[in-house]
């Protein structure tokens, strides 16, 4: 079973659908007093802190040892992949919802998401968002408050264009944001895939499966997968999803012109139910 659901779920339900995990008091606990300012700087400088770990990439033993420490830290600040269906349920619980520029993209590519193509993909959640003007550097470019319906449209729009929907916690289980992510600019996807920092991005509650009867081998899904989980099986001319690598984001299910891919429950598969 999903460890977070066990700890923070409401009677065995998915942890991120439990309204308690959107509550303000938990948020305050992390933010207390003078801790707040450095927290923001720490968040903005995020990847800089990974340099000592990355320097050890050539030394597997030392790398592994240090990686454990980083993983431990991300048990308090991390996320999980969610399906579009679940994300829509989340924005029904969370209020207010504020759209802002993606902080990872700012850090890795220095893009402020302006101009006509302005995706402004990130959604900040909770009453803390009302005080965004206090930290203009963190919320560079400003924020716009969205209604629940607008938030659903926003998430669906970017998800169908290929973005992975993820949750971000700020003091787990407090859910502070819904992100729309891709590789390599999303630091969470990157830290998990390239450096094995598992709690930074847990896999979702579902996994994708191809219906071989319907698949025509067009390859659209192969290009869309942000996790490198899909390959084209040349001889059978079918897409092959490695379900042990799949994060269950659902991007491929919307990309497939044949509707040949579906999401199935991870926990119904004994081989995958402990694989997060």
């Amino acid at each position: 079973m999903c460890e977070l659901c066990e700890k923070y779920g409401d009677n065995g339900g998915r942890w991120y659908l439990n309204p308690e995990n959107y509550a303000r008091p938990l948020y305050k606990k992390v933010e207390k007093g003078k801790e707040k300012e450095p927290m923001i700087l720490t968040e903005l400088q995020g990847p800089f802190y990974y340099k000592p770990l990355i320097e050890l990439k050539d030394n597997p033993e030392a790398f592994e040892k240090m990686r454990e420490g980083y993983s431990k830290f991300h048990e308090t600040m991390g996320g999980q992949v969610v399906s579009l269906e679940d994300a829509k349920k989340m924005v029904e619980i969370a209020q207010p919802i504020a759209r802002m520029d993606c902080i990872c993209r700012r850090i890795t590519r220095a893009t402020l998401e302006d101009g006509e193509q302005r995706p402004r993909t990130c959604l900040g959640l909770g009453v803390g968002m009302f005080r965004w003007e206090e930290w203009p550097e963190r919320y560079k470019g400003g924020v716009e408050f969205l209604s629940t319906e607008e938030a659903k449209e926003h998430i669906e729009h970017w998800h169908k264009r290929g973005m992975v929907i993820t949750i971000m916690t700020f003091g787990t289980p407090y859910i502070g944001g819904i992100c729309l992510c891709d590789y390599p600019d999303c630091l969470a996807i990157r830290m998990r895939l390239d450096y094995g920092i598992k709690p930074m991005l847990l896999k979702g509650h579902q996994v994708a499966k191809v219906n071989y009867e319907e698949c025509t081998g067009c390859g659209t899904c192969v290009q869309r997968c942000q996790f490198g989980a899909i390959k084209m099986e040349v001889t059978t001319k079918k897409s092959n999803i490695d379900m042990t690598r799949c994060f269950g984001c659902g991007v491929c299910t919307y990309a497939c012109p044949q509707d040949a891919i579906s999401l199935i429950d991870r926990e119904k598969l004994p081989g995958l139910k402990e694989e997060w």
Partner: peptide
């Protein structure tokens, strides 16, 4: 990666 070296209120 690029980041500010300091942040200030307002």
């Amino acid at each position: 990666a690029v980041a500010p070296t300091k942040v200030e209120r307002f």
